[in-house]
Write a protein that binds this DNA or RNA. Structure first.
Lengths: 162, 162
DNA sequence: TTCCTAATTGCGGCATGATGCAATAGCATT
DNA sequence: AATGCTATTGCATCATGCCGCAATTAGGAA
Protein backbone atom coordinates (compact mmCIF):
# COMPACT_ATOMS: atom_id res chain seq x y z
CA UNK A 1 0.00 0.00 0.00
CA UNK A 2 2.38 2.58 -1.04
CA UNK A 3 0.70 5.86 -1.03
CA UNK A 4 1.70 7.61 -4.21
CA UNK A 5 3.42 10.89 -4.07
CA UNK A 6 0.02 12.18 -3.17
CA UNK A 7 0.84 13.11 0.38
CA UNK A 8 4.03 14.82 -0.70
CA UNK A 9 2.02 17.11 -2.85
CA UNK A 10 -0.16 17.80 0.11
CA UNK A 11 2.81 18.66 2.28
CA UNK A 12 4.36 20.75 -0.43
CA UNK A 13 1.21 22.77 -0.80
CA UNK A 14 0.86 23.13 2.93
CA UNK A 15 4.35 24.52 3.11
CA UNK A 16 3.81 26.95 0.27
CA UNK A 17 0.52 28.06 1.68
CA UNK A 18 2.43 29.18 4.73
CA UNK A 19 5.17 30.94 2.84
CA UNK A 20 7.56 28.06 3.51
CA UNK A 21 9.52 26.30 0.81
CA UNK A 22 9.72 22.97 -0.89
CA UNK A 23 13.34 21.95 -1.24
CA UNK A 24 15.18 18.83 -2.40
CA UNK A 25 16.28 18.20 1.18
CA UNK A 26 12.74 18.33 2.48
CA UNK A 27 11.59 16.10 -0.29
CA UNK A 28 14.18 13.52 0.64
CA UNK A 29 13.13 13.62 4.26
CA UNK A 30 9.47 13.21 3.37
CA UNK A 31 10.48 10.38 1.08
CA UNK A 32 12.19 8.65 3.98
CA UNK A 33 9.28 9.26 6.30
CA UNK A 34 6.85 7.85 3.75
CA UNK A 35 8.82 4.61 3.81
CA UNK A 36 8.75 4.50 7.58
CA UNK A 37 6.18 2.82 9.72
CA UNK A 38 5.79 3.13 13.42
CA UNK A 39 8.43 4.92 15.44
CA UNK A 40 11.84 6.21 14.56
CA UNK A 41 14.39 8.17 16.47
CA UNK A 42 15.77 11.38 15.08
CA UNK A 43 19.11 9.83 14.30
CA UNK A 44 17.40 6.94 12.52
CA UNK A 45 15.92 9.43 10.15
CA UNK A 46 19.25 11.12 9.65
CA UNK A 47 20.84 7.75 8.90
CA UNK A 48 18.18 6.79 6.40
CA UNK A 49 18.52 10.10 4.64
CA UNK A 50 22.25 9.59 4.43
CA UNK A 51 21.76 6.23 2.82
CA UNK A 52 20.07 8.00 -0.04
CA UNK A 53 22.13 11.14 -0.01
CA UNK A 54 25.42 11.06 1.80
CA UNK A 55 25.50 14.85 1.87
CA UNK A 56 22.60 15.05 4.28
CA UNK A 57 23.17 17.52 7.07
CA UNK A 58 21.76 16.57 10.49
CA UNK A 59 20.64 20.03 11.44
CA UNK A 60 18.62 20.31 8.25
CA UNK A 61 16.87 17.09 9.10
CA UNK A 62 16.11 18.10 12.65
CA UNK A 63 14.83 21.48 11.55
CA UNK A 64 12.62 19.94 8.93
CA UNK A 65 11.22 17.50 11.45
CA UNK A 66 10.33 20.46 13.64
CA UNK A 67 8.53 22.12 10.77
CA UNK A 68 6.64 18.96 9.90
CA UNK A 69 5.62 18.54 13.49
CA UNK A 70 4.30 22.06 13.54
CA UNK A 71 2.27 21.29 10.45
CA UNK A 72 0.88 18.22 12.17
CA UNK A 73 2.45 15.56 10.00
CA UNK A 74 4.53 14.18 12.83
CA UNK A 75 4.60 14.09 16.56
CA UNK A 76 7.44 13.24 18.86
CA UNK A 77 7.95 12.09 22.39
CA UNK A 78 10.97 10.89 24.31
CA UNK A 79 11.90 7.25 24.83
CA UNK A 80 12.94 5.87 28.20
CA UNK A 81 16.49 7.01 27.46
CA UNK A 82 15.38 10.52 26.62
CA UNK A 83 15.99 10.25 22.91
CA UNK A 84 13.43 11.63 20.53
CA UNK A 85 10.95 9.26 18.98
CA UNK A 86 8.95 10.41 16.01
CA UNK A 87 5.59 9.04 14.96
CA UNK A 88 4.62 9.50 11.37
CA UNK A 89 1.28 10.86 10.37
CA UNK A 90 -0.50 9.95 13.62
CA UNK A 91 -4.10 9.27 12.75
CA UNK A 92 -5.20 9.76 16.29
CA UNK A 93 -3.21 11.21 19.11
CA UNK A 94 -1.84 8.50 21.32
CA UNK A 95 0.84 7.91 23.90
CA UNK A 96 3.35 5.11 24.04
CA UNK A 97 4.37 2.30 26.28
CA UNK A 98 8.02 1.37 26.23
CA UNK A 99 9.73 -1.58 27.88
CA UNK A 100 13.13 -0.81 29.34
CA UNK A 101 13.98 -4.49 29.19
CA UNK A 102 13.50 -5.37 25.54
CA UNK A 103 13.06 -1.90 24.12
CA UNK A 104 9.67 -2.84 22.73
CA UNK A 105 7.13 -0.13 22.15
CA UNK A 106 3.35 -0.16 22.01
CA UNK A 107 0.70 2.42 21.42
CA UNK A 108 -1.51 3.42 24.28
CA UNK A 109 -5.21 3.19 23.59
CA UNK A 110 -7.39 6.12 24.64
CA UNK A 111 -8.96 3.80 27.20
CA UNK A 112 -5.61 3.40 28.90
CA UNK A 113 -4.99 7.08 29.32
CA UNK A 114 -8.54 8.29 29.69
CA UNK A 115 -8.64 8.16 33.48
CA UNK A 116 -5.30 9.88 33.85
CA UNK A 117 -6.26 12.71 31.54
CA UNK A 118 -9.72 13.08 33.04
CA UNK A 119 -8.53 13.01 36.63
CA UNK A 120 -5.85 15.59 36.05
CA UNK A 121 -8.16 17.81 34.09
CA UNK A 122 -10.70 17.74 36.88
CA UNK A 123 -8.40 18.04 39.84
CA UNK A 124 -5.87 20.55 38.54
CA UNK A 125 -7.08 21.82 35.19
CA UNK A 126 -3.94 20.47 33.58
CA UNK A 127 -4.29 19.65 29.87
CA UNK A 128 -2.24 16.55 29.18
CA UNK A 129 -0.36 16.35 25.91
CA UNK A 130 -1.01 12.69 25.19
CA UNK A 131 1.00 12.58 22.03
CA UNK A 132 4.09 13.39 24.04
CA UNK A 133 3.52 10.77 26.68
CA UNK A 134 5.81 7.77 27.01
CA UNK A 135 5.21 5.38 29.86
CA UNK A 136 8.18 3.20 30.58
CA UNK A 137 8.42 0.06 32.62
CA UNK A 138 8.69 -3.67 32.04
CA UNK A 139 6.49 -5.70 29.75
CA UNK A 140 5.02 -8.98 30.96
CA UNK A 141 7.58 -11.02 29.05
CA UNK A 142 10.56 -9.20 30.49
CA UNK A 143 9.15 -9.45 33.99
CA UNK A 144 8.84 -13.19 33.61
CA UNK A 145 12.27 -13.41 32.03
CA UNK A 146 13.90 -12.32 35.20
CA UNK A 147 12.77 -9.41 37.22
CA UNK A 148 15.58 -8.11 39.34
CA UNK A 149 15.65 -8.52 43.09
CA UNK A 150 14.44 -5.47 44.87
CA UNK A 151 17.09 -4.90 47.45
CA UNK A 152 17.26 -1.15 47.74
CA UNK A 153 19.07 0.10 50.78
CA UNK A 154 17.60 3.04 52.55
CA UNK A 155 14.21 1.60 51.88
CA UNK A 156 13.70 3.62 48.74
CA UNK A 157 12.95 0.60 46.67
CA UNK A 158 14.14 1.37 43.22
CA UNK A 159 14.77 -1.58 40.98
CA UNK A 160 17.32 -1.41 38.27
CA UNK A 161 17.63 -4.18 35.79
CA UNK A 162 21.22 -4.90 35.03
CA UNK B 1 33.30 21.52 59.37
CA UNK B 2 30.31 20.38 58.97
CA UNK B 3 27.54 18.60 60.32
CA UNK B 4 27.45 14.97 59.78
CA UNK B 5 24.33 15.24 57.75
CA UNK B 6 23.44 11.77 58.76
CA UNK B 7 22.57 10.65 55.30
CA UNK B 8 26.14 11.15 54.10
CA UNK B 9 27.35 8.69 56.62
CA UNK B 10 24.61 6.36 55.55
CA UNK B 11 25.59 6.68 51.92
CA UNK B 12 29.24 6.24 52.70
CA UNK B 13 28.54 3.05 54.57
CA UNK B 14 26.26 1.80 51.86
CA UNK B 15 28.96 2.33 49.30
CA UNK B 16 31.59 0.58 51.38
CA UNK B 17 29.27 -2.28 52.14
CA UNK B 18 29.12 -2.89 48.41
CA UNK B 19 32.83 -2.64 47.84
CA UNK B 20 32.44 0.84 46.37
CA UNK B 21 34.44 3.82 47.55
CA UNK B 22 33.92 7.07 49.32
CA UNK B 23 35.85 9.79 47.52
CA UNK B 24 36.12 13.56 47.84
CA UNK B 25 34.29 13.94 44.54
CA UNK B 26 31.41 11.80 45.71
CA UNK B 27 31.28 13.67 48.93
CA UNK B 28 31.01 16.95 47.08
CA UNK B 29 28.19 15.64 44.96
CA UNK B 30 26.30 14.38 47.99
CA UNK B 31 26.91 17.72 49.60
CA UNK B 32 25.31 19.46 46.66
CA UNK B 33 22.41 17.06 46.59
CA UNK B 34 21.80 17.55 50.29
CA UNK B 35 21.36 21.26 49.61
CA UNK B 36 18.94 20.57 46.81
CA UNK B 37 15.23 20.29 47.08
CA UNK B 38 12.90 19.13 44.41
CA UNK B 39 14.12 18.54 40.90
CA UNK B 40 17.39 19.28 39.23
CA UNK B 41 18.74 18.49 35.82
CA UNK B 42 22.04 16.71 35.45
CA UNK B 43 23.79 19.81 34.24
CA UNK B 44 22.39 21.79 37.18
CA UNK B 45 24.19 19.41 39.47
CA UNK B 46 27.38 19.70 37.48
CA UNK B 47 27.14 23.49 37.67
CA UNK B 48 26.57 23.50 41.40
CA UNK B 49 29.51 21.20 41.94
CA UNK B 50 31.65 23.53 39.88
CA UNK B 51 30.68 26.45 42.04
CA UNK B 52 32.28 24.67 44.96
CA UNK B 53 35.11 23.00 43.07
CA UNK B 54 35.94 24.35 39.66
CA UNK B 55 37.82 21.15 38.87
CA UNK B 56 34.67 19.08 38.81
CA UNK B 57 34.52 16.73 35.86
CA UNK B 58 31.08 16.15 34.34
CA UNK B 59 31.55 12.47 33.66
CA UNK B 60 32.41 11.87 37.29
CA UNK B 61 29.22 13.58 38.31
CA UNK B 62 27.06 11.65 35.90
CA UNK B 63 28.62 8.38 36.92
CA UNK B 64 28.12 9.11 40.58
CA UNK B 65 24.51 9.99 39.95
CA UNK B 66 24.08 6.60 38.30
CA UNK B 67 25.57 4.89 41.31
CA UNK B 68 23.36 6.81 43.71
CA UNK B 69 20.33 5.95 41.67
CA UNK B 70 21.24 2.29 41.80
CA UNK B 71 21.51 2.57 45.56
CA UNK B 72 18.07 4.12 45.66
CA UNK B 73 19.02 7.60 46.83
CA UNK B 74 17.90 9.25 43.64
CA UNK B 75 15.59 8.63 40.76
CA UNK B 76 15.50 10.30 37.40
CA UNK B 77 13.05 10.85 34.61
CA UNK B 78 13.12 13.00 31.49
CA UNK B 79 11.58 16.43 31.21
CA UNK B 80 9.44 17.49 28.28
CA UNK B 81 12.61 18.41 26.41
CA UNK B 82 14.17 15.04 27.07
CA UNK B 83 16.74 16.26 29.56
CA UNK B 84 17.34 14.28 32.70
CA UNK B 85 15.61 15.37 35.86
CA UNK B 86 16.78 14.01 39.16
CA UNK B 87 14.69 13.71 42.28
CA UNK B 88 16.51 13.56 45.55
CA UNK B 89 15.70 10.95 48.16
CA UNK B 90 12.20 10.19 46.89
CA UNK B 91 10.18 9.18 49.90
CA UNK B 92 7.59 7.52 47.76
CA UNK B 93 7.80 6.74 44.13
CA UNK B 94 5.92 9.29 42.11
CA UNK B 95 5.66 10.62 38.59
CA UNK B 96 5.74 14.22 37.46
CA UNK B 97 3.60 16.69 35.66
CA UNK B 98 5.41 19.29 33.61
CA UNK B 99 3.99 22.33 31.87
CA UNK B 100 5.53 23.08 28.52
CA UNK B 101 4.36 26.67 28.81
CA UNK B 102 5.93 27.86 32.04
CA UNK B 103 8.23 24.94 32.75
CA UNK B 104 6.57 24.36 36.11
CA UNK B 105 6.65 20.91 37.59
CA UNK B 106 4.43 19.10 40.05
CA UNK B 107 4.44 15.72 41.62
CA UNK B 108 1.79 13.25 40.62
CA UNK B 109 -0.16 11.76 43.49
CA UNK B 110 -0.74 8.02 43.51
CA UNK B 111 -4.41 8.73 42.96
CA UNK B 112 -3.60 10.38 39.66
CA UNK B 113 -1.67 7.46 38.27
CA UNK B 114 -3.47 4.63 39.96
CA UNK B 115 -5.94 4.00 37.17
CA UNK B 116 -3.29 4.08 34.49
CA UNK B 117 -1.05 1.64 36.31
CA UNK B 118 -3.90 -0.66 37.24
CA UNK B 119 -5.47 -0.69 33.78
CA UNK B 120 -2.18 -1.45 32.07
CA UNK B 121 -1.29 -4.10 34.57
CA UNK B 122 -4.61 -5.83 34.05
CA UNK B 123 -4.90 -5.50 30.30
CA UNK B 124 -1.33 -6.15 29.26
CA UNK B 125 0.63 -7.19 32.33
CA UNK B 126 2.90 -4.19 31.85
CA UNK B 127 4.58 -2.97 35.03
CA UNK B 128 4.74 0.80 34.87
CA UNK B 129 7.81 2.51 36.23
CA UNK B 130 6.07 5.43 37.86
CA UNK B 131 9.22 7.11 39.04
CA UNK B 132 10.27 7.56 35.45
CA UNK B 133 6.98 9.01 34.27
CA UNK B 134 6.72 12.62 33.16
CA UNK B 135 3.40 13.82 31.83
CA UNK B 136 3.69 17.00 29.86
CA UNK B 137 1.04 19.42 28.77
CA UNK B 138 -0.26 22.84 29.75
CA UNK B 139 -1.17 23.89 33.26
CA UNK B 140 -4.40 25.75 33.89
CA UNK B 141 -2.64 29.09 34.16
CA UNK B 142 -0.86 28.74 30.85
CA UNK B 143 -4.02 27.63 29.12
CA UNK B 144 -5.77 30.72 30.40
CA UNK B 145 -2.79 32.88 29.43
CA UNK B 146 -3.48 31.90 25.88
CA UNK B 147 -1.55 28.78 25.12
CA UNK B 148 0.69 30.87 22.94
CA UNK B 149 4.28 31.80 23.59
CA UNK B 150 2.94 33.27 26.79
CA UNK B 151 6.17 35.07 27.39
CA UNK B 152 6.30 35.45 31.13
CA UNK B 153 9.47 33.51 31.65
CA UNK B 154 9.69 35.10 35.02
CA UNK B 155 7.82 33.44 37.78
CA UNK B 156 8.13 30.13 36.13
CA UNK B 157 10.07 27.54 37.91
CA UNK B 158 9.46 24.64 40.06
CA UNK B 159 6.53 24.26 42.30
CA UNK B 160 6.68 21.52 44.80
CA UNK B 161 3.98 19.40 46.14
CA UNK B 162 0.74 19.68 44.39
C1' DT C 1 52.60 1.48 58.45
C1' DT C 2 53.18 -0.45 53.96
C1' DC C 3 51.28 -3.13 50.12
C1' DC C 4 48.04 -4.50 46.66
C1' DT C 5 44.10 -4.67 44.07
C1' DA C 6 40.40 -2.93 41.97
C1' DA C 7 37.26 1.08 42.05
C1' DT C 8 37.46 5.86 40.45
C1' DT C 9 38.94 9.70 38.24
C1' DG C 10 40.02 12.71 34.42
C1' DC C 11 40.64 13.03 29.68
C1' DG C 12 39.48 12.62 25.03
C1' DG C 13 36.05 11.41 21.95
C1' DC C 14 31.43 10.15 20.31
C1' DA C 15 26.14 10.58 19.92
C1' DT C 16 22.05 13.30 19.74
C1' DG C 17 20.21 17.70 19.12
C1' DA C 18 19.88 22.85 19.11
C1' DT C 19 21.43 27.33 17.35
C1' DG C 20 23.91 31.57 15.12
C1' DC C 21 25.52 33.15 10.78
C1' DA C 22 26.71 33.87 6.00
C1' DA C 23 25.73 32.05 1.54
C1' DT C 24 22.33 29.84 -1.34
C1' DA C 25 18.22 29.21 -3.66
C1' DG C 26 12.83 28.93 -3.72
C1' DC C 27 9.20 31.26 -5.84
C1' DA C 28 6.17 35.24 -6.52
C1' DT C 29 6.42 39.21 -9.42
C1' DT C 30 7.66 41.96 -13.13
C1' DA D 1 13.54 35.31 -18.39
C1' DA D 2 15.33 38.32 -14.95
C1' DT D 3 14.67 40.24 -10.21
C1' DG D 4 14.17 40.60 -5.32
C1' DC D 5 12.86 39.07 -0.92
C1' DT D 6 13.65 35.87 2.58
C1' DA D 7 13.25 30.94 3.86
C1' DT D 8 16.65 27.33 4.00
C1' DT D 9 20.87 25.24 3.91
C1' DG D 10 25.45 23.96 5.51
C1' DC D 11 28.96 24.87 8.64
C1' DA D 12 30.77 25.61 13.04
C1' DT D 13 30.00 25.30 17.69
C1' DC D 14 27.81 24.39 21.90
C1' DA D 15 24.98 21.50 25.41
C1' DT D 16 23.89 17.21 27.59
C1' DG D 17 25.31 12.69 28.41
C1' DC D 18 27.75 8.27 27.70
C1' DC D 19 32.01 5.42 27.21
C1' DG D 20 36.94 3.51 26.83
C1' DC D 21 41.42 3.91 28.62
C1' DA D 22 45.41 4.87 31.46
C1' DA D 23 46.74 6.87 35.83
C1' DT D 24 45.42 7.48 40.48
C1' DT D 25 43.87 6.27 44.94
C1' DA D 26 40.67 4.26 48.56
C1' DG D 27 40.85 1.05 51.93
C1' DG D 28 41.33 -3.86 53.44
C1' DA D 29 45.13 -7.10 54.42
C1' DA D 30 49.83 -8.09 55.82
Amino acid sequence: MVEPAGSWVEVRDQLRARGLRWTPQRRLILDVLAATSGHVTGSDIVDRCRERDAETTPSTVYRTLDVLEELGYLSHSHGADGREEFHVLPETEHGHLQCRGCGGSWELAPADTGHLVGDLERSTGFAVDIGHLTVSGLCATCQAAGAGPAGAPGGAGYIEGR
